[in-house]
Write a protein that binds this DNA or RNA. Structure first.
Lengths: 184, 184
DNA sequence: GCAAAATAGAAGTCATCACTCCGCTTATCG
DNA sequence: CGATAAGCGGAGTGATGACTTCTATTTTGC
């Protein structure tokens, strides 16, 4: 179990980064070769790091989940319980605003998102749980909501954003969802 | 421009119907041959009716839009203005509940949904507009909402449904969106 | 009942990928 | 510095699948 060489680490990160951009922009139908070229590495290198296209996509997806989970955790510990959840939603959705495709990517790759249950998935679920419970305790979010629905609303709102014509439209969509989240 | 023969019409419809089922179930990666087999027609026949796989998929998609538009129109003319829009949303979302995939299909086929601007697209847009304005006039839906956002919310809510664990979860998601739609 | 239109589906073409293999390069460590 | 193995690039391979073509057969419309 010797540590990997420095350039290997660098390349892996580089591939993940580039793959995310390319996949989000062109969909999962892009060839691995194109991803490799965009990342500035040979195909061989790409396949050594990710033995399968599916594994590459999964890697990209999990990296994204990890970032989301980190954001959620930060807000859960540092932020105001009453507003942390809306703030998170707003931020997460704005992030994916440019091009969503989060789960759609996997779906079109034939992977069922809902069966994904790795560590990042769990981490996100947990962080969202904390965020949700705090908000409910603070009385700013309806009490009947649970984590799975929250995740759904997150994904759904991202999706909805794609259809908004402009920033004002996006704002209105977010307003609908946030209003709907409030305690009734 | 002689009218097509009866069996040709029948086959076309049959292909569209079957393709929808198969595509929704297995994703756009299924081979055309498989679709043809499922529809009980030869490959040649399939390709005569839809010269391209993309055109077939587009056909399926448009058929679906037409059905949606028809539903919306019916509710707009027959239903109670105050409740027609929520009723439509509920119904549309429940319909896609079994398998959403509506737009995801096209996306994974490399077609951009937002650039689709055929007749069915327009019909749906128009019907939704009527539905929306009536509801706003009746005071049951927030006045700041416009059609693009409504379409987005429709797509987004469908998506969100996929993540709900059970019927209760789906109900809660719908409740969030419907509450958010209400006039503030 | 017959000509025209349509169909089944076998066989073949051709392009596109995912993935493999292997000779070369370079980071790392003594 | 030099050895060495970890890592790299990219030509090549095999499978797949969209689409074509063609013949024998069936269906339809008049």
């Amino acid at each position: 179990m010797t540590p990997p060489r420095a350039d290997a680490v660098r390349n892996r990160a580089r591939i993940l980064d580039t793959a995310e951009q390319v996949l989000v922009e062109h969909g999962t139908t892009v060839s691995t070769e194109e991803i490799a070229k965009a990342a500035g590495v040979g195909i061989g290198t790409l396949f050594r790091h990710f033995p399968t296209k599916e594994e590459l996509i999964r890697g990209v997806f999990e990296a994204r989940l990890e970032r989301l989970a980190a954001d959620a955790t930060r807000l859960a510990t540092e932020g105001d319980p009453a507003t942390a959840l809306p703030a998170f939603l707003r931020q997460a959705v704005e992030q994916s605003e440019v091009k969503n495709a989060l789960a759609g990517m996997l779906a079109s790759a034939g992977v069922d998102v809902h069966e994904l249950s790795g560590a990042p998935q769990r981490a996100l679920r947990e962080a969202l749980g904390t965020l949700l419970h705090k908000a409910q305790q603070a009385g700013t979010v309806r009490r009947d909501l649970e984590v799975p629905e929250l995740i759904g609303l997150l994904a759904g709102t991202s999706k909805a954003m794609e259809y908004a014509g402009d920033a004002a439209g996006r704002h209105r969509i977010l307003a609908v969802v946030l209003d709907g989240l409030r305690a009734t």
